[in-house]
Design a protein around this nucleic acid. Structure first.
Lengths: 340, 340
DNA sequence: TTGTATGCGTTATCAT
DNA sequence: ATGATAACGCATACAA
C-alpha cells in the first residue's frame, strides 16, 4: 500500500534512470538508449521505457548526462547588451535555431568592456558549453587564451576580420561607413553633422566615413558624441545640441536608426523639414524605419540571418557536420527612403 | 622535458580539481573549499591553491559541481518572445541581477502557446535549474505539475493573480484597462478605435476597457485586431484600415506603444493632427514614448523592476534568505503627454 | 539488441 | 583546518 502510493506521489528524491529501469524491468543503460537513441532499441522496448517514464515522472538530469558524455548541449552567447534593438533579433534567431537543434542558450551581458567580457566568458566556460557566440572581434588576449584552450567551436558575430578566433559571421563596418559617405556626398551634401555612440563597431563605421570624406574637399563635419545606449531620446538631445551651435547642416549621419529617428523628431519639432532642410540617415533598418515620417534612409543588415547562421555553424561543427564556409560576410544594403 | 611542457601546454584533458590538488600538494576537497568557501580555509592554503589554479589553467566544471551539490546556479527564464520591446528590459534586468548573484540565465522562448511553454519547461527542467521565471499566469496544467514536482522556486511575472504557482511580481492588466477607459472618457471621447494584439495579457486590458465602457452610454468603439508581434508597421496598417472604413474616431486606444506610434504616423501621414483630430494612447512607456511628436500618452510599468525583483526573489529563496512578500503588485502609472 | 563495469569531476559526510 | 570515502546520475566501452 505504502509503496504503491509512494511510487506515484512525489518521492523524496526525483526518479533517476535506475528507477525507470526498475519500473520497466530493464537495465539503466537500455533506458538511456531508448531515450537518446531510440533507433538502436527495439520498438517494443522503447514503448516499455516510455511507459515507465510516464509512470515515474522521470526527468533526465543533463548535469549528469553532460558530465558523462562531455557534451552539455549548451551554447553560451555573449552580447554587449540584451535590451538593444540591434542585437535582439540576432539573439532571438540564435535561440530559435538552437531550440530546433535541441540546444539551450546561456545568455550573458558583457557591457562594452573587454575585461568584463573576459570575466564572463571564463565563468561561462565552467558550464562546459559545447560552443560559444561572441559579439565583435575585439577581445582581450586573456579571453582568447581561455576560449582557445577550451577547444570548443566559437562564432564571432557582427564584425569582420581575416583572422577570427574560429568561425565568424558579420559584415564590414568600414565599408558601410564608406557607403554612407559616398551616398550622402552623391546627394550633394557638404555640411555634415555626425551623431555617434562610442562603441567599437560604430567607431569603425565612423572611420569608414572619414576615410571617404578625406578624399573630398570643401566639406565640413561636426561630431556629436552620445553615450550608450543609443536611444531615440539621446538622438534628439544630440541633434538639439548640434542645432544649438548655430551651424547649418545639410545632412546628419547617425550611428543607428534610433539616433536618427531622434534627430528627425528634434528637427521636425523645430520646424525643419526632413529631408528638404536637413537630411538624416541611420543604420540598422530597425523595424520602425520603413514606417516613420519620413521613412528612414538607412543601411540594412540581416540581423536575423546572423543569428540563425551563427547557431547553425556552431551546431554543425559540434555535431561533426561539414561546415561550408566558416567566415561569412553577409554584407549590407543601403536603403534609400524618404529621410535622405 | 616532455612532462614539463605538457604541464603548460594544452593537455589532452582539461585540468581537474585533482590536478590542481596535486600541483598544490593538497587534497582535492581542500582545493574545492579554497575555491568555494575560502573563509573556512587557511589563507596560506588559499594562496597555494590560487597559484596552482593559475599554473594549471584550471576551470571548474559546474556540471560535476552541480551534480554533486544539487545546486546548478542556473535560472531558467521563459518568455513569449525575446525580441519584444515589452519584455526585453525585464530580461536584461534579470540577467544583470543574476550576474551579481553568481547565477547564469538560461533563456527560452515559448511563443504564446501554453503547450509550447510546457514542452520547453519540461526540457528546461532537465538542466536542474535552481529557479525558474515564467511569463504570465496562464499555464497548462501539465506545466504546473512539472514545475511543482521539480520543487524549485518559481516567479511568475507580468501579471497578477491571488493564486500564483509560487512567487509573483506583476500588475493588473484589467485595472490598466479601466484606467485607460476612464482617462479617455474623462477627456470627452465617445468614438473609439481599439488596435489590439491577441495575447492573453492584452486581452485582459481590453476587457478592462470594455468593462468601463459598459457603464457608459452613447459611446461607440471599433476593434482592429493585429497579429503579433506588435510593431509600428502593424500599428500603421491597423490605423489605415480603421480610417479606411470611413468612420470617425476621436480616440484610438492601442495595446502597445509601438502600435500607438504606428497609428500616429498613419494619422499624420493623412494630414490628421494628433491629438486634435484624433487622440492616441498606448501602453508600456517604451523609451521612445517621451520623445516622439507628439510625445505619447501611455501607461508606464516598471519593466526593469519586474526583472530585478524577480531575480532577487528567486535568489533569496534559493539561498534560504527571508523573502518579504512573495506576491508583488508593482502597479502602473498613466502618463499624460501630448498624444491624448 | 541488451547488459556489465567503469568513469565523468565535483561535493557531502564523516573523520582527524 | 584538512583529509578519506562515498555518492551525485548518467553515458562510454566493451561484452554477450
Amino acid at each position: 500500500m505504502k509503496n504503491a502510493s509512494d511510487a506515484k506521489k512525489s518521492p523524496a528524491r526525483p526518479p533517476t534512470l535506475e528507477d525507470v529501469a526498475r519500473a520497466a524491468g530493464l537495465s539503466p543503460i537500455t533506458v538511456s538508449r531508448a531515450l537518446n537513441t531510440p533507433d538502436i532499441v527495439r520498438p517494443k522496448t522503447v514503448a516499455k521505457v516510455k511507459e515507465a517514464v510516464q509512470l515515474t515522472g522521470y526527468i533526465p538530469n543533463m548535469l549528469a548526462g553532460g558530465l558523462a558524455s562531455r557534451r552539455s548541449k549548451l551554447i553560451a552567447v555573449v552580447v554587449p547588451q540584451i535590451n538593444n534593438s540591434m542585437f535582439i533579433d540576432t539573439i532571438q534567431a540564435i535561440s530559435d535555431e538552437l531550440a530546433l537543434r535541441n540546444y539551450h542558450m546561456l545568455l550573458c551581458v558583457s557591457g562594452y568592456s573587454p575585461e568584463t567580457e573576459a570575466d564572463i566568458v571564463s565563468t561561462l566556460l565552467s558550464r562546459r558549453p559545447d560552443g560559444i557566440v561572441l559579439t565583435g572581434i575585439h577581445h582581450s588576449s586573456e579571453l582568447k587564451k581561455c576560449v582557445l584552450n577550451a577547444a570548443i567551436p566559437v562564432v564571432e558575430i557582427w564584425d569582420l576580420t581575416p583572422t577570427p578566433l574560429d568561425m565568424l559571421i558579420g559584415f564590414s563596418h568600414e565599408k558601410i561607413g564608406n557607403a554612407l559617405a559616398r551616398f550622402m556626398l552623391g546627394k550633394g551634401h557638404q555640411r555634415f553633422g555626425l551623431i555617434w555612440t562610442p562603441d567599437q563597431r560604430a567607431a569603425l563605421r565612423h572611420k569608414g566615413i572619414l576615410d571617404v570624406f578625406a578624399t573630398h574637399t570643401g566639406l565640413t563635419f561636426t561630431d556629436s558624441h552620445v553615450p550608450l545606449p543609443a536611444t531615440i531620446a539621446r538622438g534628439r538631445e544630440a541633434m538639439a545640441q548640434l542645432l544649438d551651435r548655430g551651424e547649418q547642416y545639410s545632412a546628419i549621419i547617425c550611428s543607428s536608426d534610433t539616433l536618427a529617428q531622434g534627430a528627425i523628431f528634434e528637427a521636425q519639432s523645430r520646424g525643419l523639414r526632413v529631408p528638404e532642410d536637413v537630411a538624416v540617415i541611420g543604420f540598422g533598418d530597425l523595424d520602425f524605419a520603413q514606417c516613420t515620417l519620413p521613412p528612414l534612409t538607412t543601411v540594412k543588415v540581416d540581423r536575423w540571418k546572423i543569428g540563425q547562421q551563427a547557431a547553425t555553424l556552431l551546431a554543425d561543427k559540434i555535431e561533426g557536420l561539414p561546415v561550408a564556409e566558416s567566415v561569412v560576410d553577409i554584407g549590407f544594403t543601403l536603403i534609400e527612403r524618404g529621410s535622405a
